[in-house]
Design a protein around this nucleic acid. Sequence first.
DNA 1: TTGACCATGTAATTTGTTACATGATTTC
DNA 2: GAAATCATGTAACAAATTACATGGTCAA
Lengths: 186, 186
Amino acid sequence: MNSLGYTLLSMLVRKPCSGYELKGYLELFWQAHHSQIYPLLNKLEKLGYVVYISENDPIHKKIYSITDEGKEFLQEWIQGKTAKPITRDEFLGKLYAISIIDPKRVEELFQERQAYFQKLATIHKKTLDEIDEQFGADLTGEGWESSFGRYLICKRRYDMDLAELEWCQWANDQYRQKFNNKNFSN
Amino acid sequence: MNSLGYTLLSMLVRKPCSGYELKGYLELFWQAHHSQIYPLLNKLEKLGYVVYISENDPIHKKIYSITDEGKEFLQEWIQGKTAKPITRDEFLGKLYAISIIDPKRVEELFQERQAYFQKLATIHKKTLDEIDEQFGADLTGEGWESSFGRYLICKRRYDMDLAELEWCQWANDQYRQKFNNKNFSN
DNA sequence: TTGACCATGTAATTTGTTACATGATTTC
DNA sequence: GAAATCATGTAACAAATTACATGGTCAA
């Protein structure tokens, strides 16, 4: 099984989910396409690590639940070595060449970046508030344990969004100062 | 050409580099293997977007330089749509299931995470200091323009390292509080 | 009735990872 | 003289992306 497969199992510890839901939750720290998720869930099901209960649920929606065997399998992975986090950021790839980018385009790139993370920050703040509302900010609500991991991860993501926004402002300011002083040329 | 290929071009705007160097610089925001980088550089060379000057340089080291055609090609990419940043984080994949992880292992996971980002923060701080030293903190040194992009990216990375470390401390504290209160069970 | 979102799947292609291969240099 | 780091390459395999394919729901 690959890392994404284990991660799907990990997310099913919190609550039974459909592939579509998993894709959404996953976006906090792992962007996966549905074309990866659905086949993996089918594989996990064949292996007996998840079961699906399509019961009375609307139309063609498959809610997966982790099995005890799935939990054991997951534990083995959790005990093993943890791979380093991976990032790939095209914006930064472009920014590397900032000295030869048209100033209008630079401003545009920063603006797009800020808008993107502003949107994410808003979404993640809302999610955090919802978790607090559901379980109580003093962490006393029922079922809290199973959502604790997601809560920590969501908080991290929100913190990172804010750090990214702060950096954006700083970097854009630096650029403007630089540009006004020396006019950059090149 | 793919995003990594364009990003390599972008990095060559700053200064001529070997594939090995590029791999190192890239690690700030894009983790690529040498088995991707070397073939891409050969491809870019065949297309005339980079040239290599192995001249008097030690043994088998190939220093690549971007051409004017390469810069034009790069500009087209920079003008186009920017793909969203990608992250994949196994640690967070494990953390999702924190409610069923042995507390000792949880502490270990947090410790490893902190050590990892502490190490990165130290490296990135050092790199930032070197850039400041080389060009002057008031951004007046010669050749500053071409390293400005790298400077911004390096600062971002350092900020993110610190944010990650702060979150780690917060999250570990939350976990300990939670664990001491309710003993988590499960 | 159009567009956004929910919902799942497969196939073709591209990208990324791991393994195979080699060899020099530097530091301890 | 052993280990780490510098340095480049290819091949086999695994994973991710994009395209193809289908169909339901809900709100403006």
